[in-house]
Amino acid sequence: MKIVVCIKQVPKSDSVKIDPKTNNMIRDNVEGVINPFDKNAIEAALTIRDQLGGEVIILSMGPDSYMSSLRDGLAMGADRAVLLSSRAFGGADTLATGYTISQALKKIGDVDLVLFGRQSVDADTGQVGPIVAQYLDVPQITFVEQLRMIDQHTLIGQRLLDGSTQQVQVTLPAVVTVRAELNTPRYETPVNIQSSFEKNVDVWDEHDIDLDKSRIGQAGSPTVVKRVFAPDKKGRQTKTLNGNAKKAVQELLGQINN
């Protein structure tokens, strides 16, 4: 089995602020961590590898600072990592990111399974997985909460829909995006932390991958961020429920049912 886990580095929780003058996000000095759902994807990959053998590769696209998240993936137990890093990839939206990643997956070659976290906790799109599946022309199972390999080529995933569950069986290769319910990601271990520095990390730019330059980075991104703003921060405005308990409950239900 060759399994690639696509990860994103996200700012550590709520450390992102907005510059009130420029309306840009202040990303300097923000500590980056692996997107939490992506850790579930890594865990799923490692579990399958432990069961069926093979190789787990961590793939990400971003600046050099993303190296720390690749290293975290290796310290969890992945075998090697690839970072797609270039100014030419900058400003990519999900379409350009999905294209670039799918081309990198083609270069890695013979990939049986591509795993993603269901979405990133910063941009919250969850779009790159299905886009990659489309570009690779392979099936997808999204929002998976249970996963099991029947044999080297067949996987059954249970996805959690809104209020229902669905069993989906696919023949590999395929793209799977996973929910947090799927598993509990293992910890990095002290020994694996040290050996993560000895594992192979390839850094590829636009010259290393077969790419249509018009489809990467800002040029390949149809969407534009027009404005970023902080909504009025509402601390909890406490509303006191008056009258007797009966009236208070009536008032409460009237309000929260709206």
Partner: peptide, 23 residues
Amino acid sequence: ATVIGRSVAPRLQAMLQTGLTAD
């Protein structure tokens, strides 16, 4: 932005080569 919607939309986006904003 249901699970199905969020799974179908990006696949369709890639087919159509257009932009998609989530959620």
